[in-house]
């Protein structure tokens, strides 16, 4: 761990160090999923791949969107678009805590100087029909990661259990780099010919999307898209598995799950627009969860999701 001798100097260096650390521990380093999601957990590499018995180890950055968290780029810690770093390993290895602590050392957080603590935090995603037990990891009193042993996903018991690590990258990086406002954080090396801050890249988009999320998005259209995604998801899953054209058995679990992801994001946008009442809220969450469960059922019928 020669890298940990020097402190990272930019946001991207922290990401790069995490990538190379988890690559060195045997994870497949994937790229972000190409859809709008609320958290790294929604990436099919986590939700779907945590099902079934096939071993799995992946790490990736996932851009995540939480429309209600938009603050027009003004709040030092809140963004409607941010990055999560996600690690998922199945079955969870016995030394997962140690592996995780190694990743903190790799980005310059020495547990002999900082106070690292595992504080009870049970995770539940009502939209994914998923839950697990674990901790939020504290570094000097600040939550820097979520650490979860998945017990159930899409209504299916996880056997074996996957271990999931989620790092809130901006917050973690701000801490490591000693930055008070996210927009002032160096994105690339500050000594670069063209040094760029987080704000150089994202301040304008935070403003634009905040306005869009709270006032711009057409709610009638969003409601319609929600219905369309829901219908499309169910339709894709209703196909006979035997494909007459290729002569293969093909369950369209992933395309159907894409529609589930869409429905989830549309719900988040509608929520930000403030057009979903408290009672309706539960109903919408239930509808997304129903889709997630059907997709999980379907994935279990596929080769990747079957029991070996």
């Amino acid at each position: 761990m020669a890298e940990s001798a020097t402190l990272p100097r930019s946001f991207q260096e922290i990401i790069l160090r995490l990538q190379s650390y988890w690559a060195s521990k045997g994870c497949a380093v994937l790229q972000p999923y190409d859809m709008e999601v609320g958290a790294g957990t929604f990436h099919p590499a986590t939700t779907l791949r945590s099902l079934g018995t096939k071993p799995w180890a992946a790490a990736y950055v996932q851009p995540s969107r939480r429309p209600t968290d938009g603050r027009y780029g003004e709040n030092p810690n809140r963004l409607q678009h941010y990055y999560q770093y996600q690690v998922i390993i199945k079955p969870s290895p016995p030394d997962l805590q140690d592996l995780y602590l190694g990743s903190l050392r790799a980005i310059g957080l020495d547990p002999m100087v900082h106070d690292i603590r595992f504080v009870e935090d049970d995770w539940e995603s009502p939209t994914l029909g998923a839950w697990g037990l674990g901790w939020e990891v504290w570094c000097d009193g600040m939550e820097v990661s979520q650490f979860t042993y998945f017990q159930q996903v899409g209504g299916h018991d996880c056997r074996p259990v996957s271990g999931e690590l989620t790092y809130g990258l901006e917050r973690l990086a701000m801490y490591v780099l000693g930055i008070d406002h996210v927009m002032t954080m160096p994105f690339n090396d500050p000594a670069s010919p063209i040094p760029l801050t987080y704000g150089d890249i994202f301040r304008q988009t935070e403003e634009e999307y905040s306005r869009h999320n709270f006032d711009g998005a057409t709610t009638e259209m969003l409601f319609q898209h929600f219905k369309d995604a829901e219908a499309e998801c169910e339709k894709l899953l209703s196909f006979d598995a035997d494909d007459p054209k290729s002569g293969k058995r093909i369950v369209m679990a992933h395309p159907a799950y894409d529609q589930c992801i869409k429905a989830s994001h549309l719900f988040n946008l509608l929520d930000a627009r403030g057009v979903i009442s408290v009672t309706e809220r539960q109903a919408y969450i239930g509808r997304v969860r129903a889709l997630a469960k059907k997709c999980a059922d379907a994935f279990r019928q596929t080769e990747a999701g079957a029991d070996a």
Partner: peptide, 25 residues
């Protein structure tokens, strides 16, 4: 008063600094 789980090499300076920062937010 905060209670850490470690006798840090720097006498807890980094820990206190971090905690104060989180508290300020």
């Amino acid at each position: 008063i905060t209670v850490a789980n470690i006798e840090a090499a720097d006498g807890g300076a980094a820990i206190l600094k971090g905690n104060q920062k989180v508290l300020a937010a």
